[in-house]
Design a protein around this nucleic acid. Structure first.
Lengths: 185, 185
DNA sequence: GCAGGTCCTTGACAGTGTCAAGTTGATCTG
DNA sequence: CAGATCAACTTGACACTGTCAAGGACCTGC
């Protein structure tokens, strides 16, 4: 049926490994091909150039991202607020643990965000957060979801959740306290 | 006194132009040198390689960013809430208008964020937002500032303020409404 | 006049993405 | 079963990138 070619899968895995080890700069087509044990031009037959590989990796990352969010949510119990807190914590943990993938998913300019494999995966991630926001939402235009999503994403992107702080403060506040301000009332 | 060499300035300007025209991929040392009318290796004498040029451009961008925030704040009148709204609007406008610079400033991995020219400029931008949050802050740990900063940054980074939406919704809410939720009570 | 140093050029190198052409091997066709 | 077809992959080349070493031009101070 939808059997993915083994080399395509190997290249994606090699790319993820390269990204985790050496960051964005280390993720090249030729290195991925070398790791997969094929010639330097082989990836062109499975991806549309380097942007294609990056897009495929980002799509894969969105899948595991969605799983991370779900796991964090389900492990947080039954209280709606705890579930939303869990999702946000999963969001921040993923961003800190997989910084390379996180950068690829959201901000790398080479990734085609309209790719038919990536867009649904990204939408699914959003849907998980959206559902968890519903018990607290008072307006129908989704402003609370956007507020929560923006805040947790900005918190992660600005590095407030990472241990190495390039920031003008000693100790950043906990995200949970920030979220409480949004959910109050 | 601190006269910057003219070529260094020309290279920065060339880099900014390249970034605005062709995005991150178009910003190369050799193209910047070509625009400045010098040989391809000349930039190495003014910047520590490509990361050095990118860092210098990011530092310059933070300066104009801070000016943008101040201008937006001062044009919003005397009401503290309007001033904070103005700053956030300036933040979003800058991100949408100078997408390349915005990406460089906050998320490009080549930029050295501990650079002695960049770090103060970035801290100054934060200080402007911090001051505007003070009238609303109830906790001393700066959690409101971080909440506002995270939310406006995430809102911009996720593209809610740009006209081309790769998002699973028809019309995103206004950021002003999101901010009201944070400032309420 | 001339040593020293800054600024820049020239030339080279390894590495990158991408394309064209050729090879191989399996699968389908008559 | 022989031959055509076609996708997967290799080989080789090209332009482009950042970086480095060596050298040249030009000014400054002595």
């Amino acid at each position: 049926m939808d059997e993915t070619p083994p080399l395509r899968e190997s290249l994606i895995q090699a790319g993820i490994a390269l990204l985790a080890e050496g960051g964005t700069a280390a993720l090249t087509l030729r290195q991925a091909a070398l790791r997969a044990g094929v010639s330097h031009a082989a990836p062109a037959h499975h991806f549309n150039g380097l942007p294609g590989l990056l897009t495929a990796i980002a799509a894969r990352a969105f899948d595991t991202f969605a799983q991370t969010l779900q796991t964090a949510r389900d492990g947080a119990g039954d209280d709606p607020r705890a579930r939303l807190q869990g999702i946000c914590q999963g969001y921040l943990t993923f961003a800190a643990t997989h910084a390379g993938l996180f950068h690829l998913m959201f901000t790398a300019p080479e990734v085609d965000r309209h790719d038919p494999a990536l867009a649904p995966a990204a939408a699914h991630s959003y849907q998980i957060l959206q559902e968890a926001c519903r018990p607290f939402s008072s307006h129908p235009d989704g402003r609370l979801e956007v507020a929560v999503w923006s805040m947790v994403h900005g918190f992660a992107a600005l590095g407030f959740s990472t241990p190495t702080p390039p920031r003008p403060m000693t100790e950043p506040p906990k995200f949970a306290d920030l979220l409480d301000k949004l959910l109050a009332r």
